[in-house]
Amino acid sequence: APDSGRHRTVVPRRVAKEREAAVRIVRHHEYGPSRVLRTEQAEPPAHGPQDVLVRAAAIGVDHADVQRRLGTFPLGAPPLPYCPSTDVAGTVVEIGERVTGIEPGQRVVVWQAPDAYAEFVAAPAARVLTLPDGLGFAEATLLGSTGRVAVHLLQTARLTAGETVLVRAGAGAVGHIAVQAARALGAERVIATAGSPRKLDFVRSLGADAAVDHTRSDWPARVREAAGAEGVDVILDGVGGPRLLDDVRLLAPYGRLVCYGASGGDSEQPAVPLMDLMGMRQVTGFTMATMARGAPALVEEGVRLLVRLVTDGSVRPVIHERVPLDEAARAHDLLEQRVSMGRVVLVP
C-alpha cells in the first residue's frame, strides 16, 4: 500500500476556504468573434488520483484558441460550450494520492491543461513540469507546449551546426522561441519572416541574421538572397496556405521543411508536386500528440533541452502583454489582429 502520509492530499486552510466558493472560468457557447467569450462561475475542477490541482497565475493564449473560437481550426471545431486547453503556470494546491515527485506549494507549468482559462486547473501529473528558480509565471507558460513545439520542430528537422534556418512567423509565440533556439543549437544563419516593421525589428533583436516581410509578394526572393544560392536547410512553417509551395522551392538539396499549423487561416493546404522534391528535399508534418506517442524519449530530451536553454539565458521568453482573465476577448483580439510579439498571457 502507498504511504498515505506522503501522498495524502494536503490542503492548507486558506486554500480549502478558497475552493469552497465558485471559481471563474472563461468559455464560449457559440463560434464567432471574440465577444462570444464569457466569464462564468463554476465549481472548482475535480481531480483524480494521478492528477494535480493548480491555482493559475498565468495562462498562455494561442492562435489555435482563436481558430477554435471561430470554428475554423484545421483539425475540427471543438464541441460547445468550450474552454481552451492551453499552458498554465501556477502553484500546486492539491495532489492525487498516486502522484509522486510533486508537492503542494511547488511552482509548476502544465502543458495543454484542459479548461485552462480559469482560476484553477486540474491535469495529469505527467503534464506537469516544476519551474526553475527565478523564472516568472508568465514566462514559464512558454515551457509548456509552445516552447516544446519550437524545440521539437528543430529536433524533427534534425538541425545540425552550420545550417541555415528559416522560421516563418518568427515574432509569434512559437516562432520567437524557435529563432533563439536555432541560434543556440548552432545554426550558421537564421532568417525569420514577420509582417510589420516592429516585428521585423523584434526578430532581429532575438538574433535573426535576416528579417523578411512576408506581406510582400517578393518575400521568397528576399529569403533566397539572404540564404545564398544553395537555399535553406531547415524551414519551420506554422503559417501554411498556398505559399507553402514557396517554402518547398526555397529548400536546399537535402533540405527539410516541417509544417506544424495553419495560422494563416487557410485550412486547405496545397499538394506538393513530386518534382519539387527531386532535389532530395523533405516535407513533413508535426503534431505534439504524435511525437509524444511515437518518440517519448525524444520528447523528454527536448524538454530537458528547452529548460537548459531558458535557464542559461540562450532563449529568452518574451511576454507581449499580461491581460486580466475577465478580458480574454481582448487577448484574442491581440492575436487575431496580428499585433502581438512573443506571447500573450491571461492573469486571473
Rank of each mutant, 00 (worst) to 15 (best):
A1V: 15
T9A: 09
G261F: 07
A77P: 09
V36G: 06
V212P: 10
G231Q: 02
G101W: 12
L129M: 12
L257A: 07
L70Q: 12
R316D: 12
S4D: 14
E30Q: 09
D333M: 06
P273C: 08
V339Q: 11
G101E: 06
P132C: 05
R243Q: 13
F286W: 14
Q50E: 15
G172H: 00
V54L: 04
R216K: 14
T287Y: 09
G264R: 02
R98Q: 12
P253R: 13
Y31W: 10
H7W: 15
A181Y: 08
T311E: 15
L200F: 13
V108T: 03
L154S: 00
L306T: 01
L245V: 04
P2N: 09
V339P: 07
M291Y: 14
E321N: 14
F286R: 15
Y82I: 00
H28T: 02
A125G: 13
V36D: 03
L251P: 05
V121D: 01
M288D: 12
L250Q: 12
F137P: 00
A252C: 00
V88I: 09
L200Q: 06
A57E: 15
M288Q: 13
L143E: 13
A289C: 06
T146P: 02
G265D: 02
L298G: 04
L277P: 10
L325Y: 07
A118Y: 10
A328D: 01
V165M: 07
V108G: 01
G136S: 15
V203H: 01
E327F: 02
V93Y: 06
P49C: 02
M280T: 11
L129I: 13
I102Q: 04
V344M: 11
A16L: 07
D62Y: 12
Q106P: 12
V66H: 05
E97V: 11
A21G: 12
P296S: 11
E300N: 04
V347G: 03
L80Q: 00
V318S: 14
V234I: 10
M291V: 13
P45I: 09
T146A: 15
F73R: 04
A226I: 00
G105N: 01
D312S: 02
R158Q: 14
R243C: 08
V66Q: 06
S196C: 10
G302P: 08
L206H: 05
A122P: 06
D209R: 10
E300H: 11
L129W: 10
R222G: 02
G285S: 15
Q180P: 05
L166R: 04
L153F: 10
L143H: 08
T141E: 02
A64M: 07
Q41K: 05
P124M: 04
G76P: 03
H320V: 15
T287V: 09
I102T: 09
R198L: 04
A331D: 03
L37T: 04
T91N: 06
Q41E: 14
M288S: 14
V318C: 08
V248L: 11
P348I: 05
V248A: 14
G144M: 09
L166M: 06
A292V: 15
A16W: 04
G294T: 15
E30H: 03
A227Y: 00
R322L: 02
